[in-house]
Design a protein around this nucleic acid. Structure first.
Lengths: 185, 185
DNA sequence: CGCGCGATTGAGTAATTTCAAATCTAGTGG
DNA sequence: CCACTAGATTTGAAATTACTCAATCGCGCG
């Protein structure tokens, strides 16, 4: 079954024609490793559902240091969600850690589909709620756990990530220097 | 106008009867300073919309230290959202920093209203999206800013909070010890 | 007036960072 | 198949930041 359909049907059941209707609002796009989907300053009319590959969203500070906000692999959404929702210029960058294939959804198409199909709006509310809870957990982890504990929790939760993503990226996601991460293991 | 109505109408317009319908799904409740709305281990059938007062949600670690996940004043929602959405026992505590008055919404009522009133589901999706973006910003702040910078940003964003909340709570929200916070100012 | 809570200050300690250098690894071209 | 290079990772040492523990201060309330 299509990855997107499986993803949506984890929350709401779909008929074939409903799924076709939904899918018709996406376009598909391939990107190469290191290619940017979003650069700081861009307008962000799209969010991306990952079919294949691995991407990261991150902020660059004044010294050019990367702070990784999000990692996305198959079955995840990624974008600069603030810029996307508020129609402001991106403050984040999104680029590929691996060659990737994504489904592209414009803001207009998302809103149009939500307006016309109540149960899809329900779906987007539910995944937004789940995402909110996941971010709360990450905040609690940052507040309450040492670097080593954060590392162990991430390893436990997403063991597969560590095979796909450079350690320096993991370090930045956890909020420690790569040297410190290297000493933790 | 009713605070809840103003809150909802920031996103969707409501007729009087629509608002009455919505409000009828809430109950009102008052709590005293230090009183708990949720304790770790509880089931969490409710989320709370703050009409008046100030509350905090927090985790207690093994040594009994508080890690503040959220502060809520008038016009904010608070609960243990993971437990609320997933029907699992609370891992957080929620209690009052000031005498408070809240509107109580059960999970069943929220879902019932969302199912029966598409535009309310739209509202809940939109505030969930906003909350998600706000948490992303907090994470970036934790990843990229020093204690002092985090303090300054919070002061800039919510100056009124500092008049209502003990410094020790601010410290815990920012992820620093109160002694460190005291030395920052 | 005195109690108790919150806030501050001091001193020593622990964790993490920074900067620099060394090492490892995967991919490339000869 | 091997040597070479660029990028990633590790290690060392010094400096910085924040923490802990303890003592003190300040103020509002009974």
């Amino acid at each position: 079954m299509h990855l997107l359909r499986k993803h949506i049907e984890r929350i709401i059941p779909l008929t074939d024609s409903e799924f076709d209707y939904i899918l018709s609002h996406f376009t598909s796009k391939k990107y190469r490793k290191h290619q940017f989907l979003i650069q700081e300053g861009d307008l962000v009319p799209h969010e991306f559902f990952v079919l294949k590959g691995c991407l990261k969203s991150y902020m660059l500070n004044d010294e050019g240091k990367e702070h990784i906000l999000q990692l996305a692999i198959e079955d995840w959404w990624i974008s600069d969600f603030e810029a996307y929702n508020k129609h402001t210029p991106a403050s984040l960058n999104v680029d590929c850690i691996e060659d990737s294939e994504v489904l592209v959804l414009t803001y207009e198409n998302r809103e149009k589909m939500c307006a016309g199909m109540h149960k899809l709006e329900h779906f987007f509310r539910k995944i937004s709620n789940s995402g909110y809870v996941a971010l709360q957990q990450r905040i609690l982890c940052l507040l309450s756990s040492t670097a080593k504990e954060r590392y162990d929790k991430l390893l436990l939760q997403y063991p597969h990530l560590f095979q796909r993503v450079p350690k320096s990226v993991i370090a930045s996601y956890l909020g420690v220097s790569r040297e410190t991460l290297s000493r933790l293991v």
